[in-house]
Nucleic acid binder design. Structure first.
Length: 272
DNA sequence: CTGTTAACCTGAGTGC
DNA sequence: TGCACTCAGGTTAACA
């Protein structure tokens, strides 16, 4: 479900409720996520306040006044919802954070590809965050960087920009849309992009992600922000999910191909 | 090292 | 209704 704009939308919705708040209780109903929720989580985190809520790629990181940090990932179907204490528990509501304010932060994740881990105080880094590429909005992520990193790489450019070691945040939807706007076919070898194309692609990735954040993310099926609200970027999608429709620019029929087992959409006329 | 594939898991949708 | 099948916004472990 959530790519960078969706995670950022959740972060912004959550922050006002979480910052400065003490976590009274953590209720874990189902610890079997992507990795098991650490048994020590509840003991270590309850009684402590949240001092910051950051995003790194598609991870959310909540720092506590103890120095411990909670790492959250929404996987494909995860949600973090702000609800009242008496809100009935639904089938896939795996974890509740009960705050001193009387608000509940509820983690729901039907497919359980998400994660909730502890990054203990004093540990410089966490294995999951180590080796991550730059944020797309960092100055480090620019045309020169993409050009340099892509030399000699035979993988498709789509897989390349979805690779979190190159740049974080672009998932299937936004990689697909960025490539359309940059005029590059998803299956082109990364090594065969010109420097000018790298410039264009970088600026399109940034632009798309920025616009998607402004519109509260993309809701195709079930993405929702912290208050259950849908995003609006799906209205801006020009190729994703539009196989067989006419291209918005030239009218040519949009094609669907598989790139590493993921659906990709492109216009055979606008993208080469 | 690079690149490809299967795997994790549930639910929604489709066709018979 | 039921069954079989496909697909879904992510990531990594295991392989060639």
């Amino acid at each position: 479900m959530p790519e960078l704009p969706e995670v950022e939308t959740v972060r912004r919705g959550l922050a006002p409720h979480l910052l400065g708040q003490r976590i009274d209780t953590i209720v874990v109903r189902e610890p079997r996520l992507r990795w098991p929720i650490p048994e020590s989580l509840s003991r270590r985190a309850s009684g402590h306040s949240v001092v910051s809520l950051m995003r790194r790629g598609k991870y959310l990181i909540a720092a506590l006044d103890s120095g411990d940090r909670l790492i959250l990932h929404l996987g494909m179907s995860g949600r973090l919802l702000v609800v009242d204490l008496d809100t009935p528990v639904e089938k896939h509501d795996h974890v509740d954070f009960e705050l001193a304010s009387g608000t509940l932060i509820r983690f729901r994740d039907p497919r359980r590809f998400g994660a909730l881990l502890l990054w203990p105080s004093g540990e410089e880094t966490h294995p999951l965050l180590e080796g991550m590429g730059p944020e797309p909005f960092d100055a480090e992520f620019n045309g020169a960087y993409l050009f340099r990193r892509s030399r000699g790489r035979r993988v498709s450019i789509k897989s390349f920009i979805m690779n979190g070691r190159i740049v974080v945040g672009a998932g299937n939807i936004y990689a697909t849309e960025s490539l359309f706007r940059a005029g590059i076919r998803p299956r082109r070898a990364a090594s065969r992009l010109s420097r000018a194309e790298c410039d264009r692609l970088v600026s399109m990735v940034r632009k798309i992600l920025e616009e998607a954040i402004d519109l509260g993310g993309t809701t195709l099926r079930d993405f929702a922000g912290a208050h259950g609200e849908a995003g609006y970027f799906q209205q801006e999608l020009l190729v994703y999910g539009r196989e067989g429709e006419g291209c918005a620019v030239c009218g040519t029929l949009i094609k669907r191909v598989l790139v590493n087992q993921r659906s990709s959409f492109y216009c055979p006329h606008c993208q080469c």
